[in-house]
């Protein structure tokens, strides 16, 4: 196993791990705002590692540039998309989930 292969395997593993975290977050987290945390952070980094692995694997100029572009693009658009959706959700009056004690305080 060469260094390049080792790097590729490592990056792919990290990418899959963070995609997994994003999926678990999407299922477990309580409201649309906290789920967006999963969509922006974990999923973006997962994509980042996966694309890094692909760029290292190919190692040719065209593919590295395409990978870099895809990376920059995802890092810029994912937060923006999440922002657009949570903004719409907030404007529609969808409640922000808070911890239980706080819920009780508010209802008093």
């Amino acid at each position: 196993m060469t260094l390049v292969t080792a790097l590729v395997v490592l990056f792919v593993a990290l990418g899959v791990f963070f995609t997994f975290v994003a999926a678990v977050g999407m299922i477990r987290l309580p409201d649309v705002y906290s789920r967006s945390h999963a969509a922006t952070k974990a999923d973006t980094l997962g994509a980042g590692f996966a694309i890094l692995a692909v760029a290292v694997y190919f190692g040719t100029l065209g593919e590295v540039i395409r990978g870099a572009f895809l990376l920059v693009f995802i890092y810029y658009t994912n937060p923006t998309a999440a922002h657009a959706i949570t903004r719409a959700a907030y404007s529609r009056g969808i409640d922000v989930w808070t911890t239980e004690e706080n819920r009780q305080e508010e209802s008093r």
């Binding site: 994003a22 999926a23 999407m26 649309v32 789920r35 967006s36 999963a38 969509a39 999923d43 994912n78 998309a81 999440a82 959706i85 949570t86 719409a88 959700a89 529609r92 969808i94």
Partner: peptide, 9 residues
């Protein structure tokens, strides 16, 4: 919005 976030993921 939950659905759209999920579709985005």
């Amino acid at each position: 919005h939950d659905r759209v976030v999920a579709v985005n993921v």
